[in-house]
Design a protein around this nucleic acid. Structure first.
Length: 542
RNA sequence: GCCCCGGUAGCUCAGCUGGAUAGAGCAGCGGACUUCUAAUCCGCAGGUCGCAGGUUCGAGUCCUGCCCGGGGCGCCA
């Protein structure tokens, strides 16, 4: 949807204005007549029925500077809003310690639907257009992807989708750790399997190792280097297939090996030019402690070999030189200890530490009959991404993984997940979408639509419209906070709002048919968009 | 010892960066299918928001200390 005409790099804000933004602006304007608010007034949909369609705390924030009781100020605010909003304000009420509750007219609600029906509703909210690199999954290519990678993949992809919808230019990147000692260990394991020998201590013990070895002709006799390369290639191909089947499609598969030796040397040069390295105890160090790290870090060992950190430096230099405005790395919880040093290194390289985001994903714990099991690639004990998809399907799997905040650990009991997959809320949301399609089918292809109408709106219609109108703010919030799980929560709530409307209001055949079809169209479009942001399908029928 | 993430209903989790009587899904109990899709809907029950202080008109949310669970603190990758 972002193809075609170029857009302004900085938004005027006009694209974003909608009924809620107008309302918010009116409240802000009314407030500024009275005094200085200590913070921006809220404008929210109260969870409590009977507290109006929208509610603001502006009066309480103004009380100090205006030197008057909050409830008195709320009355003055209301009087001002009454003039500003005219017929759109149906009624108001001052409540509690000084809340101002607003009830908007049916006309305001009807007009709002047209806004929600506009193409791209909720998108393009970014204030500043950026070229963003999102690096995620980045699993070692020495074994199959497990559910932890699935979580990382679902999250990274959903975040990328959010950023794209928000208006950013996003590159999805997978960093392939195809260099270093784990590749050697993998090659040794492959050779042992090919020769029918026991896998050496510290090697990879999973059955997949034998399968991979079988796919490499002459594996028993190949040089370790070559065997490692072949093995990694096979694993990588498998990973690509698994991820594609899971709906995750990377733009770039970046090989760590290609950073050696030139990229690493280049990275060291850059640090050297910045005066950020020194030699001590026979090793080469980088002064990360001057940028917030606990201690300085070795990048070249006293034996002349590079540390893993050397690759990280080269990689981040490379990313910067590819012209990204923002780098987002999605890591597993076991890497949180590296956040400070990588941020420090990035700053030492002359980067802006705020332009490098390191997002830590908490783990997926495997639970079997109430017992926690440890997932480990080397021991071969894990639930694979493929297995998860085979058991419960892509949509249920993605929903399961995306419905929770990324900083909460997830307990996965595969038996339970299998049992409960039929009860996965994702189907409820999809069902609402399919049901709307069914209603439209019933109405026929030529049925009229209108956002005009007479007569009172049903409370369920008003609630559905209000829910639709909050979508742009939800997208904004989910994007700003890197929190796609909010979209899942929103999608469920929207599906509930639609289902209540469907229950209470006859659509096809009613004298409000054209209006209710327009409302249904808007609900369907937003449901489809929300599901798409999560990488979940929106079926026409179920 | 230090650092990061959690602790909210029986279970799994939200809680819009401080707002009104803390929510959802699942599980449980009781109801609803001659109707635009019952993968649905309605009702009931379920809580010392880990504990103790503090900040203020107001704290699940912010601060301090402690308890519990998970993860991390290499010249490994």
């Amino acid at each position: 949807m972002h193809d075609g005409a170029p857009r302004d790099p900085v938004r005027s804000g006009t694209l974003m204005t909608g009924p809620i933004e107008d309302l918010r602006a009116a409240v802000a304007a009314a407030a500024s007549e009275i005094g200085e608010a200590s913070s921006a007034p809220t404008l929210e949909r109260p969870r409590q029925a009977g507290h109006g369609d929208f509610s603001t705390n502006a009066a309480m924030l103004l009380a100090k500077s205006a030197g008057a009781p909050p409830r008195d100020i709320a009355e003055r605010l209301a009087a001002s809003l009454d003039v500003r909003l005219g017929d759109d304000l149906a009624s108001y009420e001052v409540a509690g310690p000084g809340f101002l509750n607003l009830v908007l007219s049916d006309g305001w609600h009807r007009r709002a639907i047209a806004h929600a029906l506009a193409p791209g509703f909720g998108g393009d909210g970014a204030q500043q257009l950026e070229k963003v690199n999102v690096e995620f999954v980045s699993a070692n290519p020495t074994g199959p992807l497990h559910v932890g990678h699935a979580r990382n993949g679902a999250y990274g992809d959903a975040l990328a989708r959010l950023l794209e919808f928000h208006g950013q230019d996003v590159t999805r990147e997978f960093y392939v750790n195809d260099y270093g000692s784990q590749v050697v260990r993998f090659a040794e394991s492959l050779r042992a399997r090919a020769r029918g020998e026991a896998v050496p201590e510290g090697g990879y013990k999973g059955d997949y190792v034998a399968e991979v070895a079988e796919q490499i002709p002459g594996a028993a006799e190949l040089e370790l280097d070559e065997l490692g390369r072949r093995g990694v290639a096979v694993m990588l191909e498998r990973s690509k297939e698994s991820l594609l089947a899971f709906g995750v499609d990377f733009d770039i598969w970046f090989s760590e090996a290609t950073l050696h030796p030139d990229g690493v040397a280049h990275g060291f040069d850059r640090l050297g030019e910045m005066g950020e390295t020194y030699r001590a105890e026979g090793a080469l160090w980088v002064k990360t402690s001057e940028h917030g790290d606990d201690k300085d870090r070795v990048i070249e060992r006293s034996n002349g070999e590079h540390t893993y950190f050397a690759s990280d430096i080269a990689y981040h230099v490379n990313k910067r030189e590819r012209g990204f405005d923002r780098l987002i790395d999605v890591w597993g919880a076991d890497h949180h200890g590296y956040v400070q040093r990588v941020k420090a290194m990035f700053e030492a390289l002359g980067g802006d530490r705020d332009k490098l985001e390191l997002i830590i994903m908490q783990f997926v714990h495997l639970v079997e009959r109430g017992e926690r099991a440890q997932m480990s690639k080397r021991s071969g004990e894990f639930v694979s991404l493929d297995e998860l998809v085979a058991e419960i399907g892509v949509d249920a799997a993605r929903w399961f993984l995306l419905a929770r905040s990324h900083d909460t650990t997830i307990d996965l009991d595969l038996d339970l997940a299998r049992e409960q997959s039929a009860e996965n809320p994702v189907y409820y949301v999809q069902y609402a979408h399919a049901r709307i399609e069914s209603v439209k089918r019933k109405a026929g292809p030529d049925a009229n639509r209108t956002t005009d109408g007479a007569g009172d709106l049903h409370p369920s219609e008003r609630a559905l419209i209000q829910k639709l109108l909050t979508f742009p703010a939800e997208v904004q919030e989910a994007t700003d906070r890197r929190a796609p799980h909010r979209i899942a929560a929103y999608a469920l709530e929207l599906a509930q709002s639609f289902t209540a409307f469907y229950r209470d209001c006859q659509i096809v055949g009613s004298d409000q048919q054209a209006f209710r079809l327009a409302l249904s169209d808007a609900a369907q479009a937003v449901l489809a968009r929300a599901l798409d942001l999560l990488g979940v399908s929106a079926p026409q029928e179920m």
